[in-house]
Design a protein around this nucleic acid. Structure first.
Lengths: 242, 242
DNA sequence: TCCCGATCTTTACATCGTAAAGATTAGGTA
DNA sequence: TACCTAATCTTTACGATGTAAAGATCGGGA
């Protein structure tokens, strides 16, 4: 729907070749951030594009995150991003790396804020789900997009840090050191269980697939309460099945 | 990359208005079953398009599943699908409904085949992951696409059946009847835990995000073994955390 | 001072989804 | 049987997107 803008792709940043306009645009290079005059070379387009991309993502969702939309948002020509990111995969991967860093920071600060044992146990999962709810576009970008190039150092590193944080948290819970190069089946199962549970819960929640459950729960039960119950309730013995 | 075909969009099914070319149409102009030669109105385009879409999906992945590609695969003009499905969302939603039915059938037959108690407990999750591994494109379509219209009766019904099967399985494990309209927090938590765990495991596995774990496990450990360990190992007490 | 290369813009092209108008046929009706 | 309406399929057209390539513009040395 909101795609009806028929602006001839030359939106803002009118740059005439007339020499008369030269002097007006020109200086303001150093001191104050006088970027209001759209400098000829912009100076920090890469960062500006990433910020624009984040705005577009949160405003229009994953489907609206296009190279041209980002360029429009940043006020540059539609081909400008190419020089900084190569292609859409490049931009999207760099943005996902930023997302992972935000995400990791959120979990670290949540852990730091926890005091009681119960809080310490639930801090991470709660922060995980809370981040995804607060930044659904970014979470989708990080975990459900196919256009990610995980071989990019920045993305690989940020995603790896996320995994390491998880593994360490599990190790701490099990009161054992998790070495970086080898895992027992039990350790791997514990990590996979924790990650699968929280990640699965998050994606199902964002997709609205938990609505059916939430509606049937006692009135007023929130997703966070369901998460907590899911994580704390003991697993009952399950003889029959299917 | 493999998108460099510059066939002028009129690929097969050359239908000139010249009456002379009538008899010579598409495949072998032979056989008594005259249905083979691209009939004027096709007769069963809707089903043919769905089958073509499934082929395209499994062959080219989610990104390759376009209206035009499906039309090409079925040998009709690019606008033909519109009349049967409205738009891409329509086609994709109907295909996802088919996927859910396949998916449900796979789990039912896996349950039927289970004999021992352990098998009965693991039959469903294993079938879940196995289906996703066998049909990654379809699973992605069902659970990670945003272009799904869950208000379509066929899709809604098939997806609902999937959820009902899960809830019933959990109820059977807990040896209690799960009523359709109300759940205790404990029941909801059990359902959410089971679904989140298996769905999360599946998406992480398909995205290659469990590779790090699998590589560090004892040599030769498979994803299925990790899944089983994750589902069966008892949850250890977890005093510290974060 | 002058020129090279990095940065950004223009232009161009193939593909996609979708709408609208034209062609073709099936099936009911007179 | 002959026709006629509606469903089905094709053509044509338009705006949007990603990407490549060529042109313009400037920063920073030589």
């Amino acid at each position: 729907m909101a795609k009806s803008e028929t602006k001839t792709e030359t939106a803002r940043r009118i740059r005439t070749t007339s020499p008369a306009s030269r002097g007006r645009l020109r200086p303001a290079p150093r001191t104050a951030s006088a970027k209001a005059e759209t400098p000829y070379h912009h100076g920090a387009l890469r960062e500006a594009l990433l910020q624009a991309a984040e705005r577009v993502l949160e405003r229009e969702g994953l489907a609206g995150l296009t190279l041209r939309a980002v360029a429009r948002e940043a006020g540059v020509s539609h081909a400008a991003p190419t020089h900084h990111f190569g292609d859409l995969t490049g931009l999207v991967s760099e943005l996902a790396a930023i997302g992972f860093r935000q995400f990791n920071a959120a979990m670290v600060s949540a852990c730091d804020a926890a005091t009681t044992p119960l809080e310490r146990m639930l801090a991470r999962p709660k922060a995980y789900v809370a981040y995804a709810q607060a930044h659904p576009g970014m979470y989708g970008l990080m975990f459900r997009t196919e256009r990610l190039d995980h071989s990019r150092p920045s993305l690989h590193e940020a995603a790896e840090a996320s995994f390491a944080g998880l593994a360490n948290a599990i190790g701490a819970m099990r009161q054992e050191q998790i070495s970086g190069d080898a895992l027992t089946l039990d350790q791997g199962a514990a990590i996979a269980r924790a990650w699968s549970m929280v990640h699965g819960f998050t994606t199902l929640l964002l997709d609205g697939r938990l609505k059916d459950i939430l509606e049937r729960l006692p009135k007023g039960t929130t997703a966070e309460q369901l998460l907590q119950a899911m994580l704390t309730s003991t697993v009952t013995p399950k003889p029959p099945g299917c």
